[in-house]
Design a protein around this nucleic acid. Structure first.
Length: 370
RNA sequence: GUGCCUAUGGUGUAGCGGCAACACAGAUGACUGUGGAUCAUCUAUCACGGGUUCGAAUCCCGUUAGGCACC
């Protein structure tokens, strides 16, 4: 009988892979882009709209949902899928990253982290065991090990964070009781190849159902990011999905797939949508720009999303300047469609054995507007 | 018609003889395991014409345009 979390590679093109990952809430076709729904909602769009976009996986967040409304409340209400009315796969981040990026102050020790809520200043403590307990209450299909994300250029702190992250993943595994959730480990190590390699080797020894790459796109240079991905590509097992956390610009998605990454998530498309920037097949455009005041054509003439099928750029600009909520919704639909479509095109090109050509063509045309 | 008051960016205001400031609006950019937040940069020949002064948004005279009062 299957465990429910097999990863099957259907096709390869160089180091890129097209696969299928099985979860209790359905299959995920990879390479995959996952929209972020931190507070049990992908901001400004409904689950029905996400389905129409063919979104496969949605992220939610342990730190935020633990603080509000509380993981036990969500468990009482039947778990996250039912709570947010999204019955396709969900992944919850462990909360490690948010403790460091959002909490007003935090104190970390080998056992866990004590921090003050960014909402009301109240004091809380999260340990690996607590993070798993919260994530079991939430009930996502994929859950993440509690980790410490160091700053990319501090080798001493990175080594400490790495050892801590390794000790914590062991504790997460021990604390885990549900068999219908896959626990992914997170590789840390900043920009340091030795640390990254050590982290990958340690986690691979645990034979987890998937491996996440953390601590990238947090301030290091692009060549550094790519060389770490290339290093990890040869360290990680072929038959497990690789998840690059927090990365989601179109060029990064293509570059990531080229280096063997299967899953990505990122706030970028939804955040940019709320900040009046559209992602097109050739680059970003700022919808608020005065040049679009009477532009009749849609944002992207090649796009077939609901927004581009029905609305002029001039109308979207009007909504943006008038600060209407619909601006965020329509731009979010468009931006998510652009990334999801990009991943579908990448997947098809891998299956058709023409991914290298696809990538070359993509980089030739990317960011060449005007 | 007479008297008094006012005139500073797109809007509303500060500055009262020494580098024209603030808020909003506007423009441009940033945003990568989410604070619908935020941040950065830009946007004025101080109504017009003359005078006093080393120096005028500021003081004086006139013009124009508003406001108030009286008739």
């Amino acid at each position: 009988m299957s465990t429910g979390f097999e990863f099957e590679i259907k096709s390869r093109a160089s180091r890129a892979r097209a696969g299928v990952f099985n979860t209790p809430h359905g299959e995920l076709s990879t390479p995959l882009f996952a929209p972020v729904g931190t507070q049990a909602t992908v901001k400004s769009v409904t689950p029905a709209q996400l389905e129409e976009l063919s979104a496969g996986l949605v992220l939610a967040n342990t730190y935020h949902l633990y603080l509000r409304p509380g993981d036990e409340i969500i468990a009482q209400l039947g778990g996250l899928h039912s709570f947010m009315h999204w019955y396709r796969p969900i992944l919850t981040d462990s909360g490690g990253f948010q403790v460091f990026s959002l909490a007003d102050s935090r104190k970390i020790d080998s056992d866990g982290v004590t921090f003050k809520s960014h909402i009301d200043g109240s004091t809380h403590r999260i340990t690996p065991e607590k993070s798993i307990s919260i994530q079991e209450n939430l009930g996502a299909d994929i859950i993440m090990a509690f980790d410490e994300c160091g700053s990319p250029y501090d080798v001493v702190k990175n080594e400490i964070a790495l050892e801590r992250t390794h000790a914590w993943v062991d504790r997460c595994l021990k604390a885990k009781t549900r068999s219908d959730q896959a626990l992914f480990g997170i590789i840390q190590g900043g920009v340091y190849p030795e640390l990254r390699k050590r982290s990958a080797e340690y986690l691979c020894g645990l034979d987890l159902p998937g491996y996440a790459i953390g601590g990238l796109s947090v301030g290091e240079t692009k060549p550094e990011t790519l060389s770490i991905l290339e290093l990890l590509d040869v360290c990680l097992p072929e038959n497990k999905p690789r998840y690059l956390m927090g990365v989601g610009s179109p060029e990064d998605l293509v570059a990531g797939v080229q280096r063997g990454v299967d899953i990505f998530d990122c706030v970028l498309p939804t955040r940019l949508a709320r900040h009046h920037t559209a992602i097109t097949h050739t680059g970003r455009i700022n919808i608020a720009n005065a040049r679009y005041v009477s532009e009749k054509s849609p944002i992207d003439d090649r796009c077939t999303c609901y927004t581009c099928r029905n609305f002029s750029t001039a109308y979207l600009r009007h909504l943006v300047l008038a600060k209407e909520i619909l601006a965020a919704t329509l731009l979010t639909i468009h931006n998510l469609n652009t990334l999801i479509k990009l991943m579908n095109d990448i997947r098809q090109s891998i299956i058709d054995a023409r991914f290298d050509q696809f990538a070359t063509n993509f980089f030739e045309h990317w960011d060449k507007i005007e």
